[in-house]
């Protein structure tokens, strides 16, 4: 908190300074190799604040000086409840990462990482130089592509609440057996419908596995994100694959060709990207790393 070894940047926040609390923090976007050419210029980051660099140990950290009355822990907790803020911040963060990644291999840092001063960031680059180097060499010359697959049916997933009970009652088959009570008939139809849905789900999931395997075969690394909730994806269909693929730039054509061959086989495939390789540097540089996180990402070959 009291570390102000960096330039005394007078941020816009000169508000309530109580005691030794510094009024600004250092928001970290990404760490890149020190570019041989010119890096990006005139970048603006979160809240429109200019982006500057901190260079150390052959690495460059892209940062903004941010007011702690908005980027301190408590204000951030509140802000994270505000979707507009989250969106603007995420897009600003992303904008910086993208610009940096275009000029040099860059390791994006997770959203909302704030240090108390430049000195801490320099210290980080010193201490973690080898880790950053390792990460950066993995992603050099590669870009991330996203492929999402939707199953055609606009129904809820098997685990979910069955779409209104009316759905089961709409089609009333003529009573083949007079003896069957309406209740039994309902249950039978209901079970059949559930079975059918589960079957369709399994089929779609198997297709998704196939798609993923085929794409992963062309990729240097792959990762499956959690499928997006329909409320977030904006699409009612099942999302059966939310994949990320780290692809050599020289193999992108091949990747696209494989993707094309996978289309029209019952899944709607949607491509996003190119992304900075966010999904492939989910590494925890924390002191007490929980190794649960990095495990599913280490598909790098």
């Amino acid at each position: 908190m009291a570390d102000t070894t960096g330039r005394a940047t007078t941020g816009p926040a000169t508000g309530p300074v109580n005691g030794a609390t510094a009024a600004t923090g250092v928001y970290l976007y990404a760490v890149a190799e020190e570019a041989t050419g010119a890096g990006p210029v005139d970048l603006t980051g979160v809240e429109g604040i200019p982006v500057r660099t901190i260079t150390r140990a052959g690495l460059v950290a892209y940062v903004s000086t941010v007011p702690l009355d908005r980027f301190g822990e408590e204000p951030l907790r509140r802000s994270l409840e505000d979707l507009d803020w989250v969106e603007e911040t995420a897009r600003a963060h992303h904008g910086v990462v993208e610009a940096v990644a275009e000029t040099a291999p860059a390791a994006p840092v997770r959203l909302a990482t704030v240090y108390s001063g430049d000195g801490q960031v320099r210290d980080l680059l010193d201490r973690r130089r080898d880790d950053f180097r390792a990460v950066l060499s993995q992603i050099a010359g590669r870009r991330e592509w996203g492929v999402k697959a939707y199953a055609g049916q606009a129904t809820s997933s098997p685990g979910g609440v069955p779409a209104a009970s009316g759905a089961a009652g709409t089609e009333r088959p003529e009573k083949s057996e007079e003896a069957e009570s309406p209740g039994k008939a309902y249950l039978r139809r209901r079970q059949a419908s559930l079975r059918g849905r589960e079957e369709r789900w399994r089929e779609a999931a198997a297709r998704a596995d196939h798609v993923h395997a085929a794409l992963a075969a062309v990729a240097a690394a792959d990762r499956r994100h959690r499928p997006q909730d329909p409320r977030l994806s904006g699409r009612p269909e099942w999302m059966v694959l939310n994949g990320a693929y780290l692809v050599e730039e020289g193999r992108e054509e091949e990747f696209a060709a494989v993707l094309d061959t996978l289309r029209g086989q019952g899944l709607d495939l949607q491509l996003t990207g190119p992304w900075a390789p966010y999904s492939f540097i989910a590494v925890d540089f924390g002191a007490e790393a929980e190794d649960t996180r990095a495990t599913d990402t280490e598909g790098t070959r």
Binding site: V31, P108, R110, L111, D123, Y278, S279, I281, F285
Partner: peptide
């Protein structure tokens, strides 16, 4: 998906 599940996670100081 990417900003919250990817990227370098730093903690400590």
């Amino acid at each position: 998906d990417r900003l919250l599940a990817g990227g370098v996670v730093l903690s400590g100081d």
